[in-house]
Amino acid sequence: MKGRVLVVDDDTALAEMLGIVLRGEGFEPSFVADGDKALAAFRETKPDLVLLDLMLPGRDGIEVCRLIRAESGVPIVMLTAKSDTVDVVVGLESGADDYIVKPFKPKELVARIRARLRRSEEPAPEQLAIGDLVIDVAGHSVKREGQSIALTPLEFDLLVALARKPWQVFTREVLLEQVWGYRHAADTRLVNVHVQRLRSKVEKDPERPEIVVTVRGVGYKAGPS
């Protein structure tokens, strides 16, 4: 049941190859080749994860990512041929949880997909506080003074990781490992962009963060509660 993957890619050969690999790993892939039809396909198939190519005919990947993110927190993994900072950052800022640069190895792709799906497993009931936020880990909700704040699963994981050990300063590498499930250090820009996005949602003033505090030269830590 956990394993529907929507592949949004215009390259039919790659899409077919992705299908072969994903089926071989026990996922249920579905395909769409056009950016304009991506959203409709997403609503129809209700996938557990979206594999999204950045360069698409019709709507480009960034736009599609934004649209999907607007109505769902489903994990989105971008496929990109551009490892340039700007492209990656724009992709991440539009709401993607992770990205993978072409050409990639099948194992690498599967590992990323698994890492993104794994976090959806049932967590133990747990209440956390960070700043003036109350986090219900099992209920997957974040509230400030009773008002609930909508976070994507990844942003939620990031916040929970910080809130569980408020005394600890997390380096970007450690966060990559804990939240994204990377074994060895990858691109720390992932962390930077997602911290920015998280801040824009949970901070009263994102310019002066109080919940997720930067420790210059080291990483991030939870703000005092």
């Binding site: 992705l18 072969i20 071989g24 041929a81 551009k82 072409k102 050409p103 190895k105």
Partner: peptide, 21 residues
């Protein structure tokens, strides 16, 4: 450069995955 990168990489990805399989 960016376009070449994309154009080259997409087929290479397919080849790569096929080769791995």
């Amino acid at each position: 450069v960016s376009d070449v990168s994309h154009e080259l990489r997409t087929p290479l990805t397919t080849v790569r995955m096929a080769a791995d399989v």
